[in-house]
């Protein structure tokens, strides 16, 4: 029995591979591009008019949905392959006062978060989810998508939606109004939902500007008068010159102290949220600091980095298989080995 030979060969190879490929190189969370665009959704400014939902449907060519039966208006229950953007309602007790956690209500806008370290981009086998190197916008490319729905399975925000009801269904998600054929950002326009927002609850800007603005707002004293821009924050910033409605001034509400979409939310999201009600109540997930994508890719790269480990293992296996087949083979049947 020459098992030890094999174990030596394979073990030695694997050891060399493990040490040279640097097993310990964990992939950190990704960083946003320098000129990344973003959106800030301020729940306290949202009046629930759903103009953004209507405009989103218009731009993306999507029909109204009647999730609750015979309604008179577009009434989706959640994001779907026909609804890429939805204003949802949080309600507690008698729901009497806006932006109050108990006995109150609040709005939340849900669509693709355009994650900095996007799970959908990380898992897609064929690069059908792409994060733009300049804007950081995550677009989908159905011309290469195989429809495996791993992006649907893995997105922490349940955003990508596959059209199960069609024979040639595709994945649908908000692409920040910048997919081929729409390209609003590239043309110097605002995202549709931002353009129609009457209060500035959805605000466009560069990611870094918006983060600073979000942090400024949550630090405000409740009641303190402050200016709220509409359309784009700091027009011209990052080279994105966008017109918008004039700003308005009003007293600040009592914000939650945190900004949702910070780097400590799994690397952050280019769509930021601030609100008066805790984010988990609004249905936003509580994510760990390290992104699931980083964790998954670290495992893949540890095992497959440079194909070193598989090749070393193959060498050991070829050696072992050759030893146990060749020489016992004369007149033997094909699958090698010895006759018993």
């Amino acid at each position: 029995m020459k098992r030890r030979d094999f174990l030596k060969a394979a073990g030695g190879g694997a050891l060399v591979a493990a040490t040279t490929s640097g097993t310990a190189q964990a992939r950190p969370n990704k960083e946003p591009p320098a000129n990344a665009v973003g959106m800030l959704y301020d729940s306290t400014l949202c009046v629930g008019c759903q103009a953004c939902m209507t405009e989103c449907k218009k731009i993306n060519g999507m029909p109204p949905e009647q999730a609750f039966g015979d309604d008179m208006w577009d009434s989706p229950a959640d994001l779907s392959e026909k609804t890429l953007n939805i204003i949802k309602l949080y309600r507690d007790g008698d729901g009497s006062v806006k932006d109050r956690e108990t006995d109150g209500f609040a709005f939340v806008k849900r669509h693709c978060q355009h994650c900095v370290d996007a799970g959908c981009v990380s898992v897609c086998p064929v690069t059908a989810m792409r994060k733009d190197a300049k804007t950081g916008i995550v677009t989908h490319h159905e011309d290469v998508c195989i429809g495996c729905r791993y992006c649907v399975y893995a997105c922490p925000y349940n955003v990508p939606k596959y059209e199960f009801s069609k024979a040639d269904g595709q994945i649908r998600k908000c692409q920040f109004c910048n997919q081929a054929g729409v390209e609003r950002i590239d043309q110097g326009l605002l995202p549709g939902c931002v353009e129609v927002c009457p209060t500035g609850a959805s605000l466009f800007g560069t990611y870094s500007d918006l983060k600073a603005e979000a942090e400024r707002r949550v630090a405000l004293q409740p009641g303190e008068n402050t200016v709220y821009p509409r359309g784009m924050l700091n027009p011209g910033s990052g080279g994105y010159a966008q017109p918008g409605l004039p700003p308005h001034e009003k007293p600040a509400p009592q914000y939650q102290p945190e900004v949702f979409g910070d780097a400590d939310d799994s690397g952050g999201t280019q769509v930021l949220h601030i609100a008066a009600v805790p984010f988990q109540k609004l249905g936003l997930p509580d994510l760990p600091e390290r992104s699931f994508a980083a964790r998954s890719e670290t495992v893949q790269h540890t095992i497959y980095g440079g194909a070193v480990l598989p090749i070393a293992a193959l060498a050991g296996l070829v050696y072992a298989a050759r030893r146990s087949t060749v020489g016992k083979q004369e007149g033997d049947d094909s699958t090698g080995g010895q006759q018993s």
Binding site: V123, P125, T127, G147, Y150, F164, Q300, Y304
Partner: peptide, 27 residues
């Protein structure tokens, strides 16, 4: 089960491969 099976060949096209994807390795 693949929702867009006619695009299946893309997993063999090097420029489309996402080497960090577990699904690619499995496929």
């Amino acid at each position: 089960d693949m929702g867009r099976y006619w695009n299946f060949y893309n997993i063999f096209i090097p420029s489309n491969m996402n080497l960090g994807s577990v699904m690619l390795e499995v496929g």
